[in-house]
Nucleic acid binder design. Structure first.
Length: 720
DNA sequence: CTGGTACCAATTTTT
DNA sequence: TTGGTACCAG
């Protein structure tokens, strides 16, 4: 029993053994957060304070939930199956399945992923003849999800102008459509579960008395609705509220753009009158210099809950900084450095290349590829998002729930069976008149298109009959064969991979029934929506790891190359306009830096190809926020000066694409040159117009002043 | 219904 | 530059 608590540091121990009361654990990067969370659960159970049945633990990703379960089984000889440990969406799905009638849903309700939701919205706009220029489907999707995540239904949504009123009306129409089809989107899972518990007193009382302990991971990433859901489930304000154990790090909140609200941490502290705030600041991951840099960067943010990382490990190596001329040079240099790291015995999978935006990966990939270094890029399409898989799932969904119009529309003519846009329009109109689903409307239709539609409906009916009593993998196999999907991809020139993926779907089905708690077709379909597949699989593979900084959250590597550390890129130029955008970028920088265990490289390029044109940028302000003594410049100081400066040093260098820049009389200045302006400070000349006395130059001064056009004659520039 | 082409926009993303 | 989408001809 005590062995459970061995090797915890004092703060971790304090957190794990807190009495049952609201607690907020501020867990810094690499401070053993998951360990504290799982040990807390194990401790609660092994000391008899609760049973596996009496607690609920919630995470954001399936990966985190799985890891928690795995660690828990290693700590305690209990069967974790059936425990309420999972993602917000997974747990809400479970709740809604168990009480589908009370929630007003069909037993086999389907879950729309984001792409399905968008398709459903487009279909709705078409059916209602709405101008999708004025109401872009994407905006509407954002509007609907934003409202749902704030806990606001269409009938409660406020509108001050016609445009918003129309959006609210469309939101209401969308709700109706989903209800009719028996489908729920991701946000709906949460909102529906929340409303179920709000309205159904006995049910609420049941779960409130059952879950006496609620543990929340990554609390800083919760949105408003998730917070309300937790508050409700905890019985906050009641006589015997559950003990909510919230773990998070406000400095690692990087998902505000998708609704995460760090404010929930403060609200939690206040509303739950949290007495125990525990800071986990001892870091077990990185060397001192890296932590010092991270601390220094994040100290520039205001409104922090406050935290400073430290380590017992030594200072370690300095942070290496390399400034290249172009993005290609940057990539070339990185790859050379990687080769030398590998020569020195580094494992490829312990080296990561991080970037702010996905577009940056191309150059890096190109260089790695041509050098023959194995690499892996994270963040592409996931298994259940592939076209052929979505098609197969659509057939399965129709078998489970024929009213699912999104699934219907997806495969009614795939493989092609002569059902064109005309017929579908006709069908959709009819469906509107009868207020039935597309599928159910088919028998009402007359004429030629009706015949081919009827054949399709017949096909689905036959498949449903034939698979009624088959085990899941055989159901899938039957559908693949009889839908014509296999034949279609067999005939396609490059269909081999798709065929292989379809076979993989069979395996997924087989795995599912051997492991799942709900081994039904409906269960499998929910699984496919909620767990689209691993972005972060094959971590053990011997390859260099490439990913965005966002995707790297939670991971760690011996050596990290953070690339493109430039104004405009990181911090991203768009973020400057957003409220608190810069602070979120800084948190992102903090996350990036704290991924490194031993060695951190920051790299940047003076010019970079972006959107088909060359862009010139300055080094990121975040570099200036790192104490200079922690940094080792790998670029000689004079080389860090701009190559296009008319100095002897750079005279022998070939300015890239010099010939493509039209030569103009810019009074001795050149495009790309670093200059100083009396008021705006340092900047790079990005482009120019006119020449001689009329010459105007566009200068990128970085975030504070941005990009400006100036009359050369007036600006009194000097070379910096 | 397929294939071509013209146009546009272009962070970050889990469920 | 790239990728996605939207529209038109065959």
């Amino acid at each position: 029993m005590t062995s459970l608590l061995d090797n915890l540091n004092p703060e971790q121990l304090a957190a794990v053994t807190l009495p049952p009361q609201p607690a907020l654990i501020l867990a810094g990067a690499g401070s053993g957060k998951t360990r504290v969370l799982t040990t807390r659960i194990a401790w609660l159970i092994s000391t008899g304070q609760t049973t596996p049945h009496g607690l609920l633990a919630v995470t954001f990703t399936n990966k985190a939930a799985r890891e928690m379960l795995a660690r828990l089984s290693a700590m305690l000889p209990i069967n974790t199956r059936g425990m309420w440990i999972g993602t917000f969406h997974g747990l809400c799905n479970r709740l809604l399945r168990a009480h589908y009638r009370d929630a007003g849903l069909p037993e086999t309700f389907q879950i729309l992923d984001s792409a399905d939701q968008l398709a459903a919205i487009k279909r709705l706009l078409k059916a209602l003849n709405v101008d999708d220029e004025k109401y872009p489907p994407r905006d509407l999707q954002h509007f609907i999800n934003g409202n749902k995540e704030a806990g606001v239904r269409a009938d409660a949504a406020e509108a001050w102008d016609d445009w918003t009123r129309k959006k609210v009306a469309l939101y209401a129409e969308y709700e109706r459509q989903c209800q009719k089809e028996g489908v729920v989107d991701f946000a709906e899972l949460l909102l529906r579960a929340y409303e179920l518990l709000t309205r159904n007193e006995p049910l609420r009382a049941h779960y409130q008395s059952r879950f006496r302990h609620i543990l929340v991971d990554e609390f800083q990433d919760t949105n408003r609705l998730q917070y309300l859901w937790l508050k409700l489930l905890a019985g906050h304000g009641g006589a015997e509220p559950a003990a909510v154990f919230a773990v998070g790090d406000d400095d690692q909140s990087i998902y505000a753009f998708r609704g995460a609200d760090v404010g929930n941490m403060r609200d939690f502290e206040r509303e739950f009158a949290v007495k125990s705030v525990i800071r986990l600041e001892q870091n077990y991951r990185s060397h001192g210099n890296i932590l010092d840099a991270a601390n220094a960067i994040i100290a520039n943010n205001s409104r922090r809950l406050g935290k400073n990382l430290w380590t017992e490990a030594g200072a370690g190596e300095p942070i290496r900084l390399y400034e290249a001329l172009t993005d290609m040079d940057e990539a070339r240099w990185i790859v050379e450095e990687i080769q030398s790291l590998i020569r020195d015995g580094a494992a490829r999978s312990d080296i990561a290349l991080l970037y702010r935006s996905n577009a940056q990966s191309r150059v890096l990939e190109h260089q790695l590829f041509s050098t023959g270094i194995p690499y892996r890029v994270y963040g592409g399409l996931r298994f259940f998002e592939r076209q052929e898989i979505k098609h197969a799932l659509a057939y399965l969904r129709l078998i489970a729930n024929a009213d699912d119009d999104t699934a219907f529309a997806r495969v009614v003519n795939f493989p092609t069976r002569g059902i064109g846009a005309r017929s579908l329009e006709l069908l959709a109109d009819s469906a509107r008149t009868y207020n039935t689903s597309l599928y159910a409307t088919v028998p009402h239709l007359a004429g030629r298109p009706a015949a081919s539609l009827a054949v399709f409906v017949r096909l689905i009916e036959d498949m449903r009959q034939a698979t009624r009593d088959l085990p899941l993998p055989e159901v899938i196999d039957h559908v693949l064969e009889h839908s014509g999907l296999r034949a279609h991809y067999r005939a396609e020139r490059e269909g081999e991979e798709r065929l292989a993926n379809l076979d993989e779907l069979l395996n997924a089905g087989a795995n599912f029934i051997s492991e799942a708690e709900d081994p039904t077709l409906t269960g499998f379909l929910a699984h496919a929506s909620l767990e689209a597949g691993e972005h972060q699989a094959d971590a053990g593979q011997e390859a260099i790891q490439l990913m965005t900084v966002h995707a790297a959250k939670g991971l760690e590597f011996d050596a990290v190359f953070l690339t493109g550390v430039e104004e405009g890129l990181f911090p991203h130029e768009n973020s400057i306009q957003e409220t608190d955008g810069l602070e979120e970028e800084r948190r992102l920088m903090y996350v990036a830096v704290t991924r490194a265990r031993k060695r951190l490289y920051l790299t940047l390029a003076q010019s970079r190809m972006l959107h088909g044109q060359t862009r010139y940028s300055l080094k990121s302000r975040f570099i200036d926020e790192i104490p200079p003594q922690l940094i080792k410049w790998l670029t000689p100081r004079q080389a860090a000066a701009r190559y296009y400066e008319p100095s002897q040093e750079s005279a022998h260098r070939t300015p890239p694409r010099a010939s493509s820049v039209p030569s103009r009389d810019l009074g001795g200045f050149r495009i790309g040159q670093l200059v100083r302006h009396a008021k705006f400070g340092e900047g790079v000349i990005v482009s120019a117009e006119g020449s001689g006395g009329d010459a105007k130059v566009q200068i990128n001064f970085g975030g504070a002043h941005g990009i400006k056009w100036l009359m050369l004659a007036m600006a009194k520039l000097e070379a910096a």
